[in-house]
């Protein structure tokens, strides 16, 4: 029976209410009371918020209701703070942390880096801004289905002055016979991944082959190859700017936490064994 009464929520409520009342009324009236101010600014904000959601001005009564609500919110928050309820609430802690980090991030994303700043950042992170190989080359396609002896045909071609006649040689395929400044990705897309790999290892300025692709075989003449190279700022401006900002945000947050550690005397207690 007693157990049952003890589980009764109403009883809990009465006890808690009683304790709270005792706690409040026990405050000494002779000490000057701490002020809780509902500022002009706050009232303006309340009425503006109302206007924004309802698309009209609040009436006098409605505004008063909002203010009353605010009074309760502020009073109870103050009171809760005094009771130490804020102190160990993870949700409130995280929210405060989030707010501060947002403010830091905000202040950084509105800052505009200079060209010099970007260049310096880029120089520091060279490896992130490389540009894949770019080729300029010609080729002759040989469709194995159209030749009885592919090897013999290749030998025959190689005996010719190919750089003069290459445009008239080769079998029909929907590829161009020469490409200027094509990226390795573009090359892989048109000729396949294996062909691109093969081309990467071949020397310049000579007819070579057969180089295999998914379509058959090719004789290839590479005129120019820009090896994998570091990009200039002009080539990757937008990407650098984005990375710069992300990096700046990260750095600012790290530095901010370092500064905080200096502000307080941080003690980390050893685990009790």
């Amino acid at each position: 029976m007693i157990k049952k009464i003890l589980q009764e929520p109403l009883l809990h409520f009465l006890i808690v209410g009683g304790l709270l009342f005792f706690y409040i009324s026990n405050n000494d009236d002779s000490v000057e009371k701490e002020k809780v101010i509902i500022s002009q600014g706050k009232i303006k904000q309340l009425s503006a918020q109302f206007k924004k959601t309802r698309q009209r001005e609040a009436t006098k009564e409605e505004l008063q209701a909002l203010i009353d609500n605010q009074i309760r919110e502020d009073l109870v928050f103050k009171h809760g703070q005094e009771m130490g309820l804020v102190e160990n609430d993870t949700i409130i802690k995280r929210r405060v942390q989030q707010k501060i980090e947002f403010m830091l991030n905000d202040s950084i994303s509105s800052l505009e880096p200079t060209q010099e700043g970007l260049q310096a950042f880029m120089d520091k992170h060279k490896e992130r801004y490389t540009i894949a190989p770019i080729y300029t080359f010609k080729h002759i396609y040989i469709n194995p289905e159209q030749h009885k002896d592919v090897d013999a045909y290749i030998e025959k071609l190689k005996a010719e002055k190919l750089s003069l006649v290459y445009a008239e040689r080769g079998d029909s395929i929907m590829l161009k016979q020469s490409y200027e400044d094509i990226s390795s990705a573009g090359l892989a897309r048109l000729f396949g991944l294996k062909f691109e790999k093969a081309l990467n290892t071949l020397p310049l300025n000579t007819w070579l082959g057969p180089v295999k692709s998914g379509y058959g075989v090719h004789l290839v003449y590479i005129e120019n190859k820009k090896a994998r190279h570091l990009a200039t700022l002009e080539e990757v401006q937008a990407k650098v700017k984005l990375d710069f900002r992300v990096n700046a945000q990260k750095k600012a947050i790290d530095a901010f936490y370092d500064a905080l550690q200096n502000k307080y005397d941080l003690v980390i207690e050893k685990e009790v064994k």
Binding site: I100, M103, L104, S107, I108, L111, E112, P113, T114, E116, G117, A120, F121, A248, K251, A252, A255, F256, A259
Partner: peptide
């Protein structure tokens, strides 16, 4: 906080208000 952030970011490379 803004000031902290700005200080952290080696001021010479940033042109504010641009």
């Amino acid at each position: 906080y803004s000031i902290i952030a700005t200080l952290v970011l080696a001021t010479p490379i940033l042109a504010e208000n641009e």
